[in-house]
């Protein structure tokens, strides 16, 4: 049987017996390069963690965790700093979550995403995320302590010394909240975007107002994303020193913060102080190591709590 061949318009120029393909690369080079990058990262992490763990684990004791520093920080514990850090982070989360979540809801539910104003707000949020933390610290000093705190004092306590117009845990927490606001807004918005329009329409179609729909459908549905935002905020905020050194963290305090306008000790700042301003650096070294280890463990623990809550919420949502 003769198979019809398509006739080329110019006729065959040459007869092609076989195509000479270039031999394939085995892919060892890209694989090796990427693996090397991963190994470098892992090695760095292992060195840092190992160093801190080995240097610090000997210092950790019940007494270290539950007692204040003694003898110019050469002995004693770090309890006030642990307490201050936890209190600071909790206050920060209380401040940042509502503002961040409401901002995200406003942007996603109340504005037209294509409008110029919305895009401008978004650019502003992204820029806020790029501001160096020391700038937040100076802003907190000028705005919260000088303007807000000083203003409160002038109006309510004109005859006393500074009551609110001084470094305090509330101002430090608000400054940190400002720093972590963008991550909360962005992760909440991400969560709102995944809520199906059909669900919102179902609520509206049953006579639900916008507010009821936000409260009963959108926020519960967005809760895991909101919690992710708080996890990221904790990770970012708990270790920051620059924003709090002007706004409330103290070098050494004989008491724990009991009021919102008290100063406080904080682990990160305590580390900074011990590393740079101790009269006897060598003597404080074991304590320094121990403090770093506690800070890492504490951040990790705070994160774990938030992750645990989130997985609970997810499970509950899946089961209703």
């Amino acid at each position: 049987m003769k198979i019809l061949q398509p006739t080329l318009p110019v006729g065959p120029v040459r007869v092609i017996d076989s195509l000479d393909f270039k031999p394939k690369s085995t892919g060892m080079i890209p694989r090796g390069l990427t693996l090397a990058a991963v190994l470098i990262i892992l090695a760095m992490l292992a060195i840092i963690m190992g160093n801190i763990f080995i240097g610090g684990v000997g210092t950790i004791s019940w007494e270290f965790l539950t007692h204040p520093p003694e003898q110019g920080m050469k002995a004693g514990g770090i309890f006030p700093a642990i307490f201050g850090t936890v209190a600071l982070v909790i206050l920060m989360v209380i401040a940042v979550i509502p503002v961040g979540v409401f901002t995200a809801i406003y942007l996603h539910e109340y504005t037209n995403p294509k409008s110029r104003v919305t895009r401008l707000i978004r650019v502003a949020i992204n820029n806020l995320a790029g501001v160096p933390s020391i700038v937040f610290g100076l802003f907190g000093l000028g705005f919260f302590i000088g303007f807000v705190g000083g203003g409160l004092d002038a109006v309510f306590f004109p005859d006393d010394g500074p009551v609110w117009g001084q470094p305090a845990i509330i101002w430090a927490a608000l400054t940190l909240a400002l720093l972590t606001l963008p991550v909360v807004i962005v992760s909440t918005e991400e969560a709102l975007r995944t809520i199906p329009t059909e669900l919102k329409e179902a609520s509206y179609a049953l006579g639900g107002t916008k507010l009821q729909t936000i409260w009963r459908i959108i926020i519960p549905q967005g809760l895991p994303g909101i919690l992710t935002g708080s996890i990221l905020a904790i990770s970012r905020g708990a270790g920051e020193v620059a924003p709090i050194m002007f706004t409330g963290a103290a070098y050494y305090l004989p008491y724990l913060p009991a009021k919102l306008n008290d100063q406080f000790m904080e682990l990160g700042y305590h580390i900074y102080v011990m590393a740079t301003q101790s009269p006897d650096v060598e003597a404080t070294k074991p304590i320094l190591y121990g403090t770093v280890l506690v800070l890492l463990a504490l951040t990790f623990a705070l994160n774990s709590v938030a992750i645990l809550i989130r997985s609970r919420v997810r499970k509950k949502r899946a089961n209703v």
């Binding site: 199906p196 059909e198 669900l199 329409e201 179902a202 609520s203 179609a205 949502r317 209703v320």
Partner: peptide, 11 residues
């Protein structure tokens, strides 16, 4: 009232 194309019960 309204019923939609894709059934959309709340979770």
């Amino acid at each position: 009232g309204m019923v939609f194309q894709k059934s959309n019960p709340f979770p």
